[in-house]
Design a protein around this nucleic acid. Structure first.
Length: 494
RNA sequence: GCCCCCAUCGUCUAGCCUGGCCCAGGACGCCGGUCUUUCAAGCCGGUAACGCGGGUUCGAAUCCCGCUGGGGGCACCA
């Protein structure tokens, strides 16, 4: 398959959904595996819901994810344009063709009339089907409707008694549809704009798409589309319908399950590499006993027929774990990227870091001590907020550790740090041990209270490196305040 | 209601096509232990599944049928 061409065709009616990104990823993997082309096509025929801003956002989301397209609305390509609203003449032409071949006919029913029919059928608890009353209109009848000012929509004529439509789905195997259950469906609105099922067929064919990889919600559209391929004398593409991602309640993933837009994950500090790796673990699994894969490994190992047909549930905990794996690797390989990631997150959380070299150095120091604890970028705020603002005390931590007996130790340690020579972790640790030795207590008797005084929490980075990064001045001040709090002096912030 | 799809640990999955190697493997989570100034990470151990019922077969997670459960579709949305 040297000339594989796949596409992802989003509607710019919202941000890129994780389900959409996952779907696109499989199409992209398939194309890359076969050395083919991956195409981005914007399906904006529903003008009331589509916006230019969403289109731009979707492109941005894909760039962030790291999926590059070979042809698309921004880069163009040999079979453009890649935006459906710009392809109107093409749809008009093939709509004409369908009418000329007797495979489509104008329907003068208004949406209100159709709606009434549908409601009547529902009320009678009878399956709703199109009445077919415009199917065999005479020229005179059509002229009469036109004279009334009615603008027709265009319907495809599904031949009666036609052969079953056989779809050999790459994921689901053979699926057979009886055309008996297909209605004459509308392919062009009365305003002349094409509907999904029609535009999709025209575009996929004209763009030379060889493999249509999409969600299973489109499986029942496929026979409708195949009717048109047949009517136009076109060879339909191979199709593969992957399952849809579900939420924890086994319902289609939606807002009530949490974040659904890919950019929500970006904003929380998930890494694109981790997202992609995670995507590869839903409905697919490259190897039986391994979880972490490079993109190249995924491309090499991708087989559409190995994609499962059952719907996976979006497992945020596993994604979080996987992201942690990637964060730790990144910390080794390219710590600057972690710094950059955290900088953005801190700024958005209202804890900005100075943009000069000193600010950057400070943040780098913070990342050095908390970095390996970060599973997701936003963890910098939960584990390291005290580096960027005054301590926010956890009341439980204060109650547990800032007790009167800790007061003299904290005060003595503050004095020791104030008098310490070079302010580095080795000396900082020795100073603590000396204070404890002199008082005849175990190091823990000071370590825990000191942590609470300095960070407000019971958990966090190593105490001595944390103090080094915090700097002498702040550490001493916070320890003194802690001593006062422990002594029961009810101190306010410094 | 009609059409279509799906069904292995709580979750993601391997195994299913080409029955025996599976009293079902890995991972996340959870629980314990270990390391440690805490937490995270790491390491060690544990927990937990073939939806149900019939066949076929010497033998079924694997093949067949039915049921149940879940999902999707049935728009002048995509």
């Amino acid at each position: 398959m040297g000339s594989v061409r796949t596409r992802y065709a989003p509607s710019p009616t919202g941000y890129l959904h994780v389900g959409g990104a996952w779907s696109a990823f499989f199409g992209w993997l398939f194309a890359r595996h076969h050395g083919g082309a991956f195409i981005l096509r914007i399906e904006d025929t529903d003008r009331s819901r589509s916006t230019q801003a969403y289109e731009a956002a979707i492109l941005e989301d894909f760039r962030w994810l790291g999926l590059r397209w070979d042809e698309g609305p921004d880069v163009g390509g040999p079979v453009g344009p890649y935006r459906q609203t710009e392809r109107a003449p093409l749809y008009a032409r093939y709509a004409q063709e369908l009418v000329a071949r007797g495979a489509a006919y104008p329907c003068y029913c208004t949406p209100q009339e159709l709606d009434a029919e549908r409601k009547a059928a529902e009320a009678a608890r009878r399956p709703h089907r199109y009445s077919g009353r415009c199917r065999a209109l005479t020229d005179a009848q059509r002229a009469a409707f036109e004279a009334e000012g009615r603008r027709p929509s265009l319907r495809v004529r599904v031949a009666e008694g036609a052969e079953p439509i056989v779809i050999d789905d790459l994921i689901r195997g053979r699926v057979v549809f009886d055309p008996e259950h297909l209605d004459d469906y509308i392919i062009v609105r009365s305003d002349g704009t094409p509907l999904y099922n029609f535009a999709n067929v025209v575009d996929d064919h004209l763009m030379g798409i060889t493999h249509v990889i999409r969600g299973s919600e489109h499986l029942s559209n496929t026979p409708k589309q195949f009717v048109m391929y047949r009517a136009l004398g076109w060879e339909p593409p191979a199709v593969a319908h992957h399952p849809t991602i579900l939420g924890a309640d086994r319902k289609k993933l939606s807002k009530r399950h949490g974040d659904t837009a890919l950019r929500d994950y970006r904003d929380q500090g998930f890494l694109p590499e981790a997202m992609l790796n995670f995507f590869a673990l839903m409905a697919w699994h490259p190897e039986a006993e391994r979880e972490v894969y490079s993109i190249d490994e995924l491309i090499r190992g991708f087989r559409i027929e190995d994609v499962g047909a059952a719907s996976p549930i979006f497992d945020l905990e596993k994604l979080t774990w996987l992201n942690g794996v990637y964060m730790r690797r990144l910390l080794e390989a390219d710590p600057d990227r972690v710094v950059e990631l955290c900088e953005g997150i801190l700024r958005r959380a209202g804890l900005p870091v100075a943009e000069d070299a000193a600010g950057r150095r400070y943040l780098r120091g913070v990342i050095d001590v908390v970095g390996e604890r970060l599973k997701v970028g936003r963890d910098i705020v939960v584990y390291g907020d005290f580096f960027f603002r005054d301590v926010v005390f956890d009341t439980g931590a204060v109650a547990q550790y800032l007790k009167p007996q800790a007061a003299p130790l904290l005060a003595a340690y503050a004095d020791a740090l104030a008098a310490l020579g070079p302010f580095e972790r080795g000396g900082i640790e020795r100073a603590l041990r000396e204070v404890c030795a002199r008082a005849g207590v175990d190091a823990r008797a000071l370590v825990h209270p000191a942590r609470v005084a300095l960070t407000g929490k019971t958990a966090g980075p190593g105490l001595f490196e944390l103090i080094e990064v915090l700097g002498r001045e702040r550490a001493v001040a916070r320890l003194r305040r802690g001593a006062a709090m422990a002594a029961g002096e009810g101190v306010e912030g410094p």
